[in-house]
Amino acid sequence: MIASVRAAWFADRRRPAVWTVTATWTILALAFGIGIPYLVHLALAGDPEQADAAESLLAAVLPGQLVTTGIGLFPLFGGAIVVILGALVVGNEYRWGTLNLIFTQRPRRGQVLAGHAVVLCGLTLLIAVLTFGALALVTGLLGVVEGHPAGWPPAADLAGAVAAAWLICTAHASVGWFLAIAFRSTATAIAVGLIWTLVLENAISGLALVLSPLEVVQKVLLAPSSGALAGALGARSQFDGGTPGVMESSGALLPTLVLLGYTLLMFGLGSWLAARRDVG
């Protein structure tokens, strides 16, 4: 098992696509989380009638709201990007035919896939840490530029937010991972994964506002659960002027369990499918 993890890390860390996705997401997080709100703040700052809105926007890009600003980015934007990462990590094995190579070495197929899954979890942790690290750096700089005291959030809150972001990313990545195995294709997995998370689940969430029976369904969906977890950590929902994808939540337990369930189910199903199907 350790050999499989080492081998998967050896291959995955050298894939340009992995680092392209990671860098793209980090830049997007900074742009949507900090850049755009700060630019809007600057645009509104000179207008006395918009002073409250401008102050609210500024507060959101300062270290004090690092947790809520950061975690709010993951349910919709981060999740979608990480679906792509999950699909890339295993889908390219089908595209390049490299399963022929690695399935004829020594480990069982399940061990090979578990190795990739562990590496994918490592990459999602890296993304979560990197995102919050970059946000902390830029919000800290803005604090200095704007002359506001640092006012960092408690370390436990920050660790909780990183862990939640990791869980959201891992659950989404596992979906991309499973779809790539199911379709034996990177492109189809990405297309279906994005339609699933961005279109289908959002459509059900929208319908749940008017069709109450769908509220139960909504609670076990991936994107709404991610939004509920972000909401439980204090991120403002879209209806409250917050980030799209964030939902009001009564607690973190249910969304955490749902996301854990997705992660285990998708990794398990993918491994089972790849282990029992013919290759070639």
Partner: peptide
């Protein structure tokens, strides 16, 4: 070696073999 050889295009020949060696122990 079955059908056409299949390796990671972004890795060198040596690294592809090192990867296979890691899987094989």
């Amino acid at each position: 070696l079955i059908e056409s050889p299949a390796f990671y295009p972004h890795l060198s020949g040596r690294d592809n073999l090192r990867l296979a060696a890691r899987y094989s122990g």
